[in-house]
Every structure is written in C-alpha cells, then in structure tokens.
Design a protein around this nucleic acid. Structure first.
Lengths: 125, 125
DNA sequence: AAAATATTCAACCAAAAGGTTGACAAAGGC
DNA sequence: GCCTTTGTCAACCTTTTGGTTGAATATTTT
C-alpha cells in the first residue's frame, strides 16, 4: 500500500483556493502575459504577485518562457483536468439532492393543485 | 464593482487540497459516519481529524447531526458543484491541447506510414 | 558606461494550517 | 453514583501562506 503521492492534486486545489490566483488564470485565458502584466491588477507588491505565480507554476497551471528580461506566462489548464475528474465522481450526490428538491417542489405543486381542485378558494392561503 | 466575496469557492478548493480530507469525503460517499469512524483510518489524533472535519464543514461539504454523544457526519457534495463549474470554463483549454497532441501523434503516424510505403525496410527505424 | 526596466531573492512579519497533548463536557452503561 | 466513551476545546509547536521592504540580477535603452 502506497502512503499517498497525491501532491499533484493537492497543489492544483491549493492553487485554486485563492481569488487572486483564480483571477490571474482568468486573465491568462484571454492571452499570455508577463509577470508585470499579471501583477498589475492587484493591490500588492510585485514580489507578492510573483509568489502567487510561483505557486501556480508549482501546480503546473502556468508555464513560463523567459524572453530577455521579461517572463511570459501562459496558461496550462491541463492539471485542472485531474481536479475536475476527482470532483466529477461526486456529481451524482449533488444531482441526487437537486432531483430530490425538484421532486419535493413538484409534489408541493401537485398537492396545492389537488387542494385547489377539491375546495377552491379565492385569494390568500 | 464588487471586490470579491468568493470565500465559498476558496473554502471548497482549500478543503479539497488535502489528501486526508479528500479520503474522508470518499468514505462518506459510501455511508454517513461518526467523527470517530471518520478519523479511524488515519494515523493522527482524534483532535487533528476533528479539525479536518471542521474545515470540511466550513466548506459546507459535511453536515453534522448530533445524536447523543456521537456526531454523525454526512456528505453534502453540493458545494463541489461551484468548484466544478469554475474549472469547467477552462476545459476548452486542455481539450485543445489534447486535440493538438492527438493531431501531432496522428501526423507522425501518417508520416511513418507514408515513409513505409515509399521505401519499406525490415526492422528498426 | 550609465540609467531604467523586469523580475527574483532574502529577510522579515502575521496569520493560518496541521499536528500534538491534556483537560473538559456530555451521554451511555454498569 | 461512577466509569467509559465520544468528541470538543485550549494551549502549544512547526510549517506554510500571503504579505512587506530593500538589495541583487539581468536585460534593454540612452
């Protein structure tokens, strides 16, 4: 039995667990950006943004190519795939809940309609 | 413009960013479990496991009903839905990459086949 | 060669995560 | 009533996050 070497998934989910980093990925979805451009929208030092970028890199979500003095970052969404697949296994559980809710609401409607047919009233409950 | 109040997503992704907690959710997928039962498989104190459970609760992934002295925990996968939806927006990016890879491999095959037809050889490249 | 630009690095700080232990509280069994 | 079981809480520790600043590095511009 292997202990667990699931650090890949750990790193991906951890990287996604911060609004700044998620926003950065959102910006990279439109186009590749330099570190400075990536950092610009946020009220924090460049060094702080640089750390976020490094964390994203660790998760494999960003790849970097150094062009002279600027570092161009591009999105690599691939590691998200594993995260999505992990979550997908639980999809049945929430859809089951949603179905149950729908059924419940539906039953309420039915009951209301039935009651309305039996002894109709005007206005109010 | 709202700053961002995306703490729900933060909490869900953070909760999923740990193998112990993911394993706990996996166990709850089979059946609801008490805190003790949830903690049992892991080599850590009950207090430590209790903290993991609390973090999962904070993310809304676990709901608890106190029955006498035992606390029964049941899975609520619903908050994962938001996480999955967030990731899904990036699906196009990794499928694009996979398609490109497939195309590349396909092209290699084609080229190899073509070469084989032009000047066939036996064994080796 | 000097100055400006783009980025990291190192040192530091506060807060949170992840763990421990020991004490406490509530409920159940004898 | 007492002991055991179930679980939390509080105090403490270490490591990691998330941020700061100032210095160092590498590249481009002038």
């Amino acid at each position: 039995m292997v202990k667990y070497s699931s650090t890949a998934l750990d790193n991906v989910f951890l990287a996604l667990a911060d609004p700044t980093r998620r926003a950065m990925l959102g910006n990279l979805a439109k186009q590749s950006l330099s570190v400075g451009e990536l950092a610009a929208p946020y009220e924090m030092s460049l060094a702080a943004a640089s750390k976020h970028i490094k964390l994203l890199e660790r998760a494999g979500l960003i790849e970097r190519t150094v062009q002279g003095r600027t570092h161009l970052c591009r999105l690599n969404a691939m590691p998200m795939h594993a995260g999505m697949e992990w979550i997908r296994h639980y999809e049945q559980f929430w859809t089951a809940r949603l179905d149950a809710l729908a059924a419940l609401l539906c039953a309420e409607d039915e009951a209301a309609a039935k009651a309305a047919r039996k002894k109709p009233r005007r206005k109010g409950q």
